[in-house]
C-alpha cells in the first residue's frame, strides 16, 4: 500500500528523519501490496494500531493556547482580556477564578474571539490535563507585589 513507509523504514537510521508522535500506520511487511488496488469491503475490524496521544497540559498549552494566552501584548487574548476584564484577569495562567469544567466547555465551544478546539486537536484526556494544568498553575501563582 505505502511504499514510502518501506523506503522510509530503510532510511530510518541513516537520515535525520523520524516518526513524530505515532507509530507507523501499518508494518512494511503487511502493507507491501501495489498502490493501486481497490478497497476491500469494509470489514468489521478496525485497521488501526493507533495509540491515542496523552500529552501533558503543559505541552497542549504551549501548542494551542500560549500563542494567544501568554503574558504580554503580543498575545491577542491576553491583550483583549486586559482591555475588557482588567489586568488582573488578563493572564489565564494567573487567574484563580477558573474551574476545570468551565475551561473544558470554553475550549470545545469557543468564546467570542476564541474559536472552538476539535477533539482531534485536543482529545478528552488531554483536555482534562490542560484544564488541570491551567488551574494548578494559577493556584501556584503569586502576584509580583506580594512575593
Amino acid at each position: 500500500m505505502n511504499k514510502h513507509l518501506l523506503i522510509f523504514a530503510s532510511l530510518l537510521f541513516l537520515t535525520a528523519c523520524e516518526q513524530q508522535a505515532t507509530e507507523p500506520e501499518t508494518s512494511p511487511e503487511s502493507s507491501a501490496e501495489k498502490a493501486t488496488t481497490m478497497v476491500p469491503e469494509a470489514s468489521a475490524e478496525s485497521t488501526s494500531s493507533y495509540v491515542p496521544s496523552n500529552r501533558s497540559g503543559k505541552v497542549i498549552f504551549a501548542l494551542h493556547c500560549a500563542g494567544c494566552h501568554d503574558p504580554g501584548n503580543a498575545h491577542a487574548a491576553t491583550k483583549q482580556l486586559a482591555l475588557v476584564r482588567g489586568k488582573d484577569l488578563a493572564v489565564i495562567m494567573q487567574r484563580k477564578d477558573l474551574v476545570p469544567d468551565y475551561i473544558k466547555y470554553i475550549v470545545r465551544d469557543g468564546l467570542l474571539e476564541m474559536p472552538p478546539f476539535r477533539p482531534t486537536d485536543i482529545n478528552n484526556a488531554e483536555l482534562d490535563n490542560l484544564a488541570n494544568y491551567i488551574v494548578d498553575s494559577a493556584k501556584a501563582y503569586t502576584p509580583e507585589e506580594t512575593k
Binding site: 500500500m1 500506520e25 502493507s31 478497497v39 476491500p40 469491503e41 469494509a42 488501526s48 482531534t120
Partner: peptide, 15 residues
C-alpha cells in the same frame, strides 16, 4: 465527524 488514522481507514470510509 470522523478521524481516520491511516490511509487504509480512509479507503474503507470512502467505500
Amino acid at each position: 465527524a470522523v478521524a481516520p488514522q491511516n490511509v487504509e481507514q480512509i479507503q474503507k470510509i470512502l467505500a
